[in-house]
Simulated assay, not measured.
Amino acid sequence: MLQLKVRNSLNLEGYTIIIPSICVGNAAQLACDLLIASKKMRRVGNLMHPALIPIFGPSAYQHDPQERVAACEIYECTANKLIVFQFRTPLISRHSQSLHNYIVELVRPAEKVVILSASFGFEKREIGTSPYEYCVSNSFRENHKTQLANVKWMEFKGNTVFGGGNGLQLYRLLEEKQVPVMLLFRYVLEGDNSTDATLIIRELNDLCSTFLQLEIEDKSIKLIVPVSWKLLFGNDVTSLIF
């Protein structure tokens, strides 16, 4: 169920939707954190569904300190017609298909959907090639063929993105419904994946700068680190235990 804060419906016509897969290292979710913080996006609602483990906590972003986090949040930038989903819990597998179907119906009016994900680094088979792979629907390829021709990413031809969570499943459902959709993932290792998140956003901006509209300083993207990243690995170890 979609819960909105300030309106009765969510009009996604002409919008770009970015959805993170719940993947290895949480790299896609961290990338969405960076995007939300850097563009100071406004939370417009959240999803409630049996597939989502309910949570409630303090704000994740310094630009909106009065907000509280939930299992699935929706952020908007009206100026760029950009919507970002953010997941903060893993999915309950027996309900995940139902959630995917709901999300697909929700975002069908959008102009395009970008799913971000990651895969285990040791699954990369071709050394020396780009650490990114992607797959696109025919309609997305047609709309962005010039940009896609200039990227160095490899096109994914497999059947499974190992460590990629629910990204490929959601991509196939959207493709089936003829929604322009792209799945972009990076090969990563477990650990501190904040750097991977930064690199994912930079790569995506190279393709989609027209709707990301990230501020550029000295030919580099200006990204704002969310306040929630201060405790990515929990509190510091207290000296009292030594």
Rank of each mutant, 00 (worst) to 15 (best):
G57W: 13
I36Y: 03
P90N: 10
I115F: 04
V237W: 04
V6D: 14
I241V: 13
I83R: 02
T198V: 15
Q62Y: 02
M1W: 05
N150R: 15
V188Y: 08
D218E: 14
L2F: 11
A60C: 11
P58F: 07
S119P: 02
I216P: 02
T16W: 04
E123L: 07
F120E: 04
R125G: 00
G25C: 02
N26Q: 12
P20Q: 10
F233R: 11
F140M: 05
T129L: 08
I241Q: 09
L52D: 06
E76S: 12
V113K: 02
F85R: 03
F85P: 04
L168M: 09
R108K: 15
R141W: 04
K230C: 03
F156L: 08
S38M: 10
F87H: 05
L148G: 03
M48C: 02
G167K: 01
M41I: 04
L212R: 01
L148H: 04
L240R: 13
N101A: 10
G121L: 01
R94E: 15
I224L: 14
F242I: 07
D33T: 07
I201P: 02
Q97N: 11
G165P: 09
T238A: 12
L47P: 11
F233Y: 14
E190N: 10
T238P: 13
E176G: 05
K81T: 02
E13G: 05
S239W: 11
K112A: 10
T198K: 12
I224D: 11
H63N: 12
D192A: 09
Q213L: 08
K177G: 01
G165C: 09
P226F: 09
V44N: 05
P65S: 07
K152Y: 01
A51D: 12
K5G: 06
P226W: 10
L148E: 07
I36M: 03
V179K: 13
R43S: 06
E123R: 12
T78P: 01
V107W: 07
D236V: 05
L35I: 10
L116V: 03
I55C: 12
